[in-house]
Computed example of a mutant assay.
Amino acid sequence: MNAPATSFTALRPRLFAVAYRMTGMRADAEDILQDAWLRWHEADRSQIQIPEAWLTTVVTRLAIDRLREARRERADYIGQWLPEPLVEAAPDPLQQLEHVGELSLAFLALLEKLTPWERAAFLLRESFDLDYAEISGMLGKTQAAVRQLVHRAKARLQDQSPRFEVTPQAHLDLLQRFAHASARGDESALMALLDENAIYSSDGGGKVMATLRPLQGAGRLGLFYKCLARLYDGQTVHYALAWVNGQLGLLRYNEGKLDCVMEITHDGERIRTIHVMRNPDKLALIDPAVSQIGPDTRLVL
């Protein structure tokens, strides 16, 4: 393998992390990396002092352009648009080093409130720990402008992305209890698990059944899952555990076919948010080897 390929391959996980956090789409991130590789291959590397900085700049600029296009496309999107989940059989050690909480679907959905430039400045600063001078060079803006972008981003996200210290066992226990209660449509059990202001969001892409707007409130969500269980009555529904964006989530199967990917956030006792991906276009990109029900992951309901 030649030196350019070796350098790019070594940096690829971090570059993908930047592109995915910027766009919220695996496919877009992969396209951006392909474009970045072509530019890297054609560049005069004798003029590139720090490959990582050069490539991060290219990827960030490409991601900003893609995000602008995506915003226009999503104006016609049917229902709620949610980030495409990254589903793995086991956690990626590199992701564990890259602020896993800031890889969650809940966090990425919040980033949709930001402009592309705010999103880039905020992520490079808060998720990738770059200093303002580095970000200034990457974005082609003054350090004062970058500081203002980060400040505005933090103000937009203030108090909307709470952080809770939850043990892995508490997270697993709550996922299992939720899977059992929702599969049975047990309204009282669900109410005991849900925060009174819990929010449910789902993305069907206009192709399968999904809520057009978020549902909020334990009462509404308890009734919703009760009705959903009735809808699935007579069908074989299973839940399985998988790593969704760096943390344990749920896969729901209907008649053996992957029906949705679910990410749940909570404070250790009550569920705060439920993000559900049902868009078949986004589910189709999940590795079939990961999305199959296995004896080690299937939850007995």
Rank of each mutant, 00 (worst) to 15 (best):
S127R: 06
G234Y: 01
R21V: 08
S136P: 07
D129V: 14
L172C: 03
S182F: 04
Q148C: 10
A133P: 03
D131G: 12
M138P: 10
L190N: 11
Q292G: 14
L110M: 15
I50W: 12
L33Q: 02
A106N: 02
R71M: 13
E269A: 07
T297N: 15
A198G: 05
V59K: 05
I78G: 03
S136C: 11
A36M: 11
Q176V: 05
T115V: 15
Y232G: 08
V100Q: 08
P116E: 05
D281Y: 08
E52M: 05
R177M: 09
A53K: 13
S161N: 09
A5D: 15
L62D: 10
S136H: 08
L55H: 07
H99L: 06
V100C: 00
A19N: 08
P83R: 02
R163V: 01
D186T: 10
Q247Y: 00
M262T: 11
L157Y: 06
A3Y: 14
M191H: 13
T23Q: 02
Q247W: 02
T265R: 04
K113Y: 12
A27M: 04
Q148M: 15
Q96Y: 00
F128T: 12
R147F: 10
E126N: 14
D76L: 15
G294D: 13
Q80M: 09
L228M: 13
L139Y: 04
L172N: 03
E118P: 08
V208D: 10
D259Y: 10
P4M: 11
D186R: 06
H171P: 03
N254S: 13
G204Y: 04
R278V: 03
D92G: 04
E102T: 02
A36D: 01
A90R: 00
V59A: 04
D92C: 05
L250K: 05
L193F: 09
L33G: 05
L194Q: 09
Q158P: 06
L86G: 06
L130P: 01
D131Y: 07
V290H: 00
R298D: 08
G137E: 14
L110N: 14
R252T: 06
S182I: 07
D44I: 15
K113W: 05
A133D: 09
Y253N: 12
Q247N: 03
V59F: 02
D35L: 12
D281H: 15
S46Y: 15
L248N: 00
L139W: 04
V276A: 00
G249P: 00
E263M: 03
G249V: 01
R184P: 02
I78V: 14
I135T: 10
S46R: 15
R74E: 09
P93Q: 06
I286C: 04
T115D: 07
D35P: 00
L33I: 01
F8L: 01
W81V: 11
L139Q: 11
W243T: 13
A181F: 11
A155T: 15
G205W: 10
S202W: 01
L175K: 03
